[in-house]
Simulated assay, not measured.
Amino acid sequence: MSIDAFKPSTFVLVHGAWHGGWCWARVAERLRARGHKVYTPTLTGLGERHHLLGPDITLQTLVQDIANVLVWEDLSRVTLVGHSFGGVVITGVADLMPERLLQLVYLDAFILPSGVSTFDTLPTDVTDKLRAMAALQPQPSLPAPKPKSLGLFEPEDVGFVESRLTPQPLATYDTALQLHHPVGNGLPCTYIHCTTPSFAAVEGSRLWAKENTGWDWKELQTGHDAMVSAPGLLAECLDELVYSAR
Rank of each mutant, 00 (worst) to 15 (best):
H15S: 03
S76H: 12
L241R: 04
I192R: 00
G115F: 15
P41Q: 09
H181K: 15
E154I: 05
H193E: 07
A33C: 07
R100N: 04
A135Y: 02
E219W: 13
D125V: 13
D65C: 08
P98E: 08
T44W: 04
S9R: 09
Q168I: 11
G82Y: 08
A94C: 00
P147H: 10
Q139D: 09
I192T: 06
R131L: 09
S205Y: 09
V78P: 02
T195K: 04
S114L: 10
G159R: 02
D74I: 08
T61S: 08
N212T: 01
H19I: 11
Q139T: 10
L238H: 05
W22T: 01
G35D: 05
V88H: 12
P8V: 05
L187G: 05
H224D: 07
G16Q: 06
Q139K: 11
G115T: 10
L52M: 09
T196H: 08
T213V: 06
E29L: 15
E240M: 14
P182Q: 04
F110R: 04
E99F: 10
L238V: 11
V14Q: 09
I90E: 00
L80Q: 12
G47N: 06
M227E: 12
E203H: 03
S244F: 08
N68A: 12
A132R: 06
F160A: 03
V38Y: 00
K148C: 13
S2V: 09
I3G: 12
P140D: 08
V88D: 12
L53Y: 05
T175M: 03
A67H: 14
V158C: 01
E211V: 01
V63K: 07
L107K: 03
F110T: 05
T190F: 13
K37E: 07
K146L: 12
A201K: 10
G82N: 06
T61H: 06
V183G: 03
V69S: 08
L220F: 03
R26C: 12
Q221C: 03
H224C: 10
T124D: 11
L112N: 00
E48M: 08
R32E: 01
Q139V: 13
L130A: 01
T10M: 02
H224I: 14
L53S: 02
L165S: 03
E73Q: 14
V81M: 06
E48W: 09
D95G: 07
Q64E: 14
P123Y: 07
E154D: 05
T127V: 15
P41C: 15
K129R: 07
S229G: 11
G151I: 04
L241H: 05
L142V: 10
F110E: 01
S163T: 15
L130H: 00
A235S: 05
S149K: 14
D95M: 11
L107S: 02
F160E: 04
I192W: 03
V12W: 13
H36A: 01
V63E: 08
S141Y: 12
H180C: 14
